[in-house]
Design a binder for these strands. Structure first.
Lengths: 238, 238
DNA sequence: ACAAAAGTGTTTTCGGTACACCCATGC
DNA sequence: GCATGGGTGTACCGAAAACACTTTTGT
């Protein structure tokens, strides 16, 4: 019985990369940094780093994000592992990608200027290192897939938001125009939203009522399959 | 510029584990092997092995499956990466899990008795090593999720199959009884099935017509969202 | 003739979609 | 008073669900 170790000739580096989506009220954005070390130093990149021996990949993702952006307590979920042999030309590295939806405003305080992270609109991404563009494409695909059935987009919104804002967000995600009458009926029929007494008056004269998410129902109904998008078959590819 | 290498103190082993579902006409099964090396030698396990330096994780999964079962050309897809620090008590190992649906009969020829792989009904799994039970739970969850919208269950069936067989399979996957009239209407309305002239006469006196999958339409409509299960909210957990 | 499984049709209900007008307000 | 965006209702259609009887054939 050789319990002490396996053959170690195949040990390799494992990295995590973090894809953070944020919504600023009018655009869907991704958080990127300028890579701080060679190779490709200075080029734009996802937040990434190596998994340490004594941490899980989830811990590594949280740590890397904290170190590079100051963001704390962001819930990320696993997306996919990328393992092309030369994906990082320096050395064989497998990367496990995580992604997350956050509310830009809530986290803005945490992200002071010590960090060089920057938000880019999805439509105006810079050139990215390695296979990061492919990673983002997959993340967007999954976002579209998941948001069609689960009420996850609320993660991107502040606590109080208006129906026009919410609709705008769906329109951005699916890159298609939705009918506001049908949209509001469908959303409200879930019973997930609580209408507030006050209005948001910046973006229109009349003002739009705020809503809050009913968090209890949100938890309970998360697995109810919704169907916000008329024909999800028509997903446009990123 | 130090291009030659990163710090290597955090290199670790990366493994793949393969979850293979098979349907024998009346039961949903999983393919398992008796582990061939320490620790836990002789215990039941998923097909697993270490990723080599010069192969992708997808290649590793295919190789491992071939080595341990003789199965060739099985399409597997990534499920999840497991990274708990002590998941393999011998040494820190991250495992990336793949899963697949196969037609037992078609692959039976490939699986001769040189290999000790064995099919277990989902309802009668043995005790498994490490976190393999958790992996299987997740795979089953994903199968349920995906099969509710995509016509993937045909992967589990032989080329010719009957509607009662197909319905039985859905009932096993979701552990719920379906109405055969609604079921057949729904399935046939997809236009994915081609009725054959002959009947399967083993499981009933009258016999049930065989159908074949229209592979052209299957490709084309894979992303059409179907909805075979009345209320997917009622998914029972594994 | 009867048991056992295959096969088929109708009605109701509900959710999805298309579509157009009035409302509140700041300028 | 008018331009801007917010908010609401209705009619039609198709898919989902509930539901029961007839057919075939081996024994």
């Amino acid at each position: 019985m050789r319990l002490s170790h396996y053959s170690s000739k195949n040990k390799m580096l494992v990295a995590v990369d973090c894809i953070i989506f944020g919504f600023d009220g009018s655009q869907l954005n991704l958080l990127l940094i300028q890579r701080g070390f060679e190779p490709e130093k200075g080029k734009w990149s996802l937040m990434g780093g190596f998994v340490q021996k004594e941490e899980t990949i989830e811990d590594a993702a949280a740590r890397v994000l904290k170190e590079l952006t100051g963001l704390n307590d962001v819930y990320m979920e696993q997306l996919h592992a990328f393992s092309a042999i030369k994906r990082d030309p320096t050395e064989r590295t497998i990367s496990i990608v995580f992604s997350s939806l956050i509310n830009i405003r809530e986290y803005r305080r945490q992200m002071n200027d010590d960090y060089h992270a920057q938000w880019f609109p999805l439509t105006k991404l810079p050139v990215l290192i390695f296979d990061h563009k492919e990673m983002i494409g997959l993340a967007l695909q999954k976002l579209r897939y998941k948001a069609a059935f689960h009420p996850i987009v609320f993660e991107l919104l502040p606590e109080k938001f208006t129906l026009p804002q919410l609709q705008n967000l769906y329109e951005l995600i699916y890159d298609q125009v939705l009918d506001k009458r049908n949209f509001s009926r469908k959303i409200l029929s879930t019973g997930l939203l609580i209408k507030q007494k006050d209005k948001e008056k910046e973006s229109s004269k009349r003002g739009a009522f705020y809503y809050k998410l009913d968090k209890r129902k949100y938890q309970a109904q998360f697995n109810s399959f919704l169907n916000f998008i008329p024909n999800p078959d028509n997903f446009r590819r990123p």
